[in-house]
Design a protein around this nucleic acid. Sequence first.
DNA 1: CAAGGCACTGAACAAGCATTTAGCATGCTG
DNA 2: CAGCATGCTAAATGCTTGTTCAGTGCCTTG
Lengths: 226, 226
Amino acid sequence: MLNMCSAPRRPPEPEEDLTARARIRGAAIACFGQKGFGVPVRTIAERAGVSPALVMHHFGSKAGLRRACDEHVRNLVYEIKKDSVTTADQRTFLDRFAGMDEYAPYVAYFVRSFQAGGDIAHALFEHMVEDIENYLAAGEEAGTVRPSRDPAARARFLAMGHIGSLQMFLTMHFPGPDIDFREVMRAWSERITLPTLEIYSEGLFTNRAMLDAYLLYVGDPPEEES
Amino acid sequence: MLNMCSAPRRPPEPEEDLTARARIRGAAIACFGQKGFGVPVRTIAERAGVSPALVMHHFGSKAGLRRACDEHVRNLVYEIKKDSVTTADQRTFLDRFAGMDEYAPYVAYFVRSFQAGGDIAHALFEHMVEDIENYLAAGEEAGTVRPSRDPAARARFLAMGHIGSLQMFLTMHFPGPDIDFREVMRAWSERITLPTLEIYSEGLFTNRAMLDAYLLYVGDPPEEES
DNA sequence: CAAGGCACTGAACAAGCATTTAGCATGCTG
DNA sequence: CAGCATGCTAAATGCTTGTTCAGTGCCTTG
């Protein structure tokens, strides 16, 4: 009934498919992102305009479907990052995705993955940390970012806080099952931009007492900076 | 078989119960915290040493049980905060709970609630924001904390990042179903303390270019501080 | 045209779940 | 003692879920 495409089939692993298989995967990414991974296969099938049995036919199981979704978004991230190497774009992959409205479903999928944990979440998180660390290292070299006693830990801290606050914002302010992620991202960045820039530019404390006390505590002598 | 208690019964709403009802609620808080709210009623009943039917008898439904748990932890938070008013304790309720090992199950329950959203998460989050805002206002008055152009937004930002990063840390590093929350909190604070203090004490950027650009963009003139 | 493979479906199946039902024991009250 | 409420349980019920089954129609190939 819905054979809308006559693209050549490659028996083992069709790279480029606009077939029902791709529609199901797209519907799955959208549903997973909007409603979380608990969403029934029936809902995904309905959204793709196919029967639940066809989902199993193509992906074997719900877990297989999710694996396919993971792989798909992972490849997207790789391509985005490949671009950013040549463009010297100084944003994390998440920010680049969030900047493009049509990619909103993927951002939703990312956030759900982070919420649920698992392999893809790990991989994406490490990419995020890496992006931030590179960004900060470049800034350090250019003199716009302060050096850290532990740059890796700082990058991890910032990544955790960044993604985590987005998650918190989502669950606090958009509890419903149907979510417009463009709106979420807009409201979120609107609320965090000022405090982020304030704290990153000016700090939070007026003196270094707590930092120095901690450095003494862990046995690292406090430094003598301006 | 297990009538271990002869405390006086108050027909309508027993305030102080060491009965099976209380055991079920305790088991529920522990299970919800350790394994999330998807945990079957059977598991909770087993842990409390009762039948699943008794859970329904006492709480009506699984949702009713969760409501009772919410109310219980909410009351605990109220008491903690009442204490902290008289003690002038400068920590958020979450930090105070986390400081007491025997309260670890409650911290786990908090984090799960934040993950799942809902009324109690909202309430706890607002408490958290309030705690932080008071803490910062006091610091501001004492001269240890910098003033902000929007103290409320800053407190929300910090609360979201704080709780969010704990959540991220949990799902990234402790994916298993059985979680020792004391260990989680220990590892988490070990990793974030240095970068937190660095950024809060020294900032992240060496100059105010981005902040000033933003202030101009939103129509607020950048200030002339040192 | 015959044969076979492929995408696809409706209907059933099986498991896990929350919840209900019917009943057992115990202890209190008349 | 009877009557009855209470705390509690084993077993059944019904719903939702992922998954399987037995096809059906279409397209290509011989």
